[in-house]
Design a protein around this nucleic acid. Structure first.
Lengths: 98, 98
DNA sequence: TAAAGTACTTTGTAAAATAAAGTATTATAT
DNA sequence: ATATAATACTTTATTTTACAAAGTACTTTA
């Protein structure tokens, strides 16, 4: 297929909010819900939904624990997620570079 | 704001199909409806809607004429569209590099 | 002249993104 | 003590978007 084939772009990653989440998480070993929320500039509800989606796709892993009696969710990217992101980037770069 | 702020991504360009359309059109001076359809691998209806959206944003210009008694729509990117695409790319690159 | 093809546009539907509201708990002020 | 605000989320409802199906207006071919 053509390099311009839009269906070749992984839409699980491509959504603005999910792309930002993943880009943030590939740059560090892990991040909490609140940290992601602040960096990505998302609302709680919206973030929750998209983190769940990425988790269900096994692109992200979560650890849920209580710290000082409060819930704390820590997210990190999986191998599958990292590979999907690499392949996504390759597609996008082929698309935008000349 | 953070480089990871998802709302900083131009969503008019970001949609998979519109990104593909624009990427195709920055690489050449113009393309017909059918040409875009084939390269981008889109259905007629879907393509029509998104071309219209880009046209209304003044990212694309259209010339509609009859050639051999048949309608022929020829699309090209505008200065505004080209600039928006450049700025979009800068955002995405800041997001995905390292 | 009937059927198939081209080049689209319009309209309806499904899916996705987002916002609003809700849950559960803790911390703080009165 | 208890009401208020804050934290850290999840669930549900609403809006928006993407997409597909159907429609229009022809032309070409059989």
């Amino acid at each position: 297929m053509s390099q311009y084939d839009y269906q070749a772009i992984d839409d699980l990653i491509h959504s603005r909010i999910r792309l930002s989440i993943i880009a943030l998480l590939v740059s560090r070993s892990a991040a909490t819900f609140t940290c992601i929320k602040n960096r990505v500039n998302a609302s709680d509800g919206n973030l929750s939904v998209h983190l769940r989606k990425l988790e269900q796709a096994n692109y992200l892993a979560v650890e849920k624990q209580f710290i000082k009696r409060k819930p704390l969710s820590t997210y990190s990217i999986t191998e599958k997620g990292r590979k999907a992101f690499q392949s996504y980037i390759q597609h996008i770069e082929a698309l935008i570079n000349r």
